[in-house]
């Protein structure tokens, strides 16, 4: 076990835990933002530099500060480490710079982007960015690439977090056929010779994409996410866990995604059949409304767990029951 001080808060975590995960155990506003790191994907992290923190003391043995800011998502804790995040102005300044860098070539087409409302970059920029830009040059643009009937790749929005590459390596079956081509600001996600990414778990690249670069073609331009209502549901699926979130508008299921935790990380990967093909309520056992963070724009219309289907509550998977205990539904009339 290692005891660290993060923004003045002491916490004890197992050896080998990264600074970011230690901070997540504390929770709240002190958690550094992460644009590329994704806990379920091995090897991810260290690229976006959004989570840079100051290590004011390296360890109890060697209390010297680290000379540069370190990426908290990949740096393991040491016993006696003192980390400064929100308490250090230089860290916040650098973070502001990172937002600026990520946005200079981003099209900022949020009004027409399907990811708006659940976009990591949008949240990150809202929290840490400034409202104007110093960038006068032309923005880098790419042609949209068609990578099959289900997924749309719009490289112009990409921030090159590499998450989808790791998904293809670690989650999807078969050989990875997409990757990063080119380098520098001309680097792009692509399939080299245009090809269809087609395997049972390819749809997960949509869930891990922090921006609107990879979107669900069955949902594109159908609805703003904050007008849809997320509902937890499950079905018996031979390929995956079958635990999903259905996004309703009225009585129609517009979209199916995997369930995510509060940091936007997928809990259980889902297969393409669940994601793209099962779009009828009758395909699913409805568990009840999915929890949406109060700060999210999706709960802007005060949509937060108002009711629960009592008849299924006993049959719910343990994970959902735990979630319900942590985030109990509001009692009507209270």
């Amino acid at each position: 076990m290692a005891k660290i001080t993060f923004d003045g808060i002491e916490i004890e975590v197992p050896d080998g835990t990264t600074i970011l995960n230690a901070a997540r155990q504390i929770g709240g506003a002190i958690v550094p933002p992460a644009m590329c790191y994704y806990t379920p994907l091995k090897g991810s992290g260290g690229k976006c530099r959004a989570c840079l923190v100051k290590v004011a003391a390296g360890s109890a043995k060697d209390p010297r500060p680290m000379p540069k800011l370190v990426a908290s998502c990949i740096t393991p804790v040491q016993d006696g480490m003192v980390v400064e995040n929100t308490t250090n102005d230089s860290v916040l300044d650098v973070r502001k710079g990172i937002v600026e860098m990520l946005l200079i070539n981003h099209p900022l087409d949020c009004p027409v982007c399907d990811q708006a409302g659940e976009c990591d970059l949008q949240n990150f920029a809202f929290e840490h960015g400034v409202s104007t830009t110093r960038y006068q040059e032309e923005r880098r643009t790419f042609e949209k690439i068609d990578i099959g009937p289900l997924i749309q790749l719009h490289m112009t929005r990409c921030i090159l977090c590499y998450r989808c590459v790791y998904v293809a390596d670690q989650i999807s079956e078969g050989d990875r056929i997409h990757g990063v081509l080119g380098r520098g600001d001309a680097a792009e996600i692509g399939t080299y010779i245009e090809n269809i990414i087609d395997n049972d778990f390819s749809g997960n690249v949509i869930d891990v994409c922090p921006v609107g670069a990879l979107t669900d073609k069955t949902f594109r331009f159908k609805q703003r996410v904050w007008f849809t209502k997320p509902v937890n549901a499950h079905r018996d699926c031979p390929k995956c866990s079958g635990n999903v979130v259905l996004w309703y508008k009225g009585n129609d299921v517009l979209r199916t995604t995997a369930r995510k935790d509060q940091y936007g990380e997928v809990k259980e990967w889902i297969c393409n059949e669940c994601r793209f093909e099962k779009k009828e309520t009758s395909d699913w056992t409805i568990e009840g409304p999915a929890h949406i963070d109060r700060s999210s724009v999706i709960s802007a219309n005060h949509y937060e767990l108002p009711v629960l289907n009592q008849s299924v509550i006993a049959d719910l998977p343990a994970s959902t029951q735990r979630e319900l205990e942590q985030n109990p539904p509001l009692k009507l009339g209270s």
Partner: peptide, 17 residues
């Protein structure tokens, strides 16, 4: 700008800028 690998954001975007 030409030789940046494009992996991390400050270098990828900053060198071009």
């Amino acid at each position: 700008h030409h030789e940046s690998c494009g992996q991390c954001s400050p270098c990828r975007e900053g060198t071009g800028w």
